[in-house]
């Protein structure tokens, strides 16, 4: 039966043409297509992996951000507390300083008052001494208005001076 007997002519053409088709497609057709498809699927896979990584990084960043904000808030609170304490201290210091200065001024004032008092006392003493001398002069003048009274006084004074020069006698 001719149906199941391979025909030589057709076998010849089949070998030739299939050979050419195979050569052309294997060289310019299929490797190009499968290569590109593989490349694309690889790149998609890589993109997915990168997206996953990016998501992870984003998550980490968000966590870090949260941590930073928390830290900043703590820092803020700390600074505020410190500022309040500092303020108190400054006020306290100022008070202290003021007290010291006031004391110093009071002390100085007292000193001045004392010096003034001293000066005043001296002046009073001088004046009193002047007055006493004046009074004494007037008194002496009244006592020594006669010559015998004057010579009597001179004698007494000489006596006194002798006594003070010769205490052994």
């Amino acid at each position: 039966m001719s149906l199941i007997t391979p025909d030589f002519g057709l076998l010849f053409w089949m070998t030739l043409i299939f050979g050419i088709v195979f050569f052309v497609l294997a060289k310019f057709g299929f490797p190009m297509i499968t290569g590109m498809v593989k490349k694309r699927s690889d790149s998609i896979e890589q993109s997915l992996r990168e997206a996953e990584e990016a998501r992870k990084t984003l998550k980490e960043l968000a966590a870090e951000q949260k941590k930073l904000i928390e830290e900043a808030r703590k820092e803020q609170a700390r600074i505020l507390n410190e500022a309040a304490a500092n303020g108190d201290k400054i006020v306290h210091d100022a008070c202290e300083q003021a007290k010291i200065q006031t004391n110093a001024m009071i002390e100085k004032a007292r000193e001045e008052i004392r010096i003034e008092q001293e000066t005043a006392r001296r002046q009073i003493a001088d004046e009193v001494a002047g007055l006493a001398i004046e009074v004494a002069e007037k008194l002496v003048r009244g006592h020594l208005n006669t010559a015998e009274k004057q010579s009597a006084l001179i004698d007494r004074m000489i006596e006194e001076a002798r006594a003070s020069h010769n205490p052994v006698n």
């Binding site: 299939f18 088709v21 195979f22 294997a26 299929f30 499968t34």
Partner: peptide
Amino acid sequence: YAPYLLTAFFF
């Protein structure tokens, strides 16, 4: 083997 098998399939 892909080029031969692909050629055979499409042929």
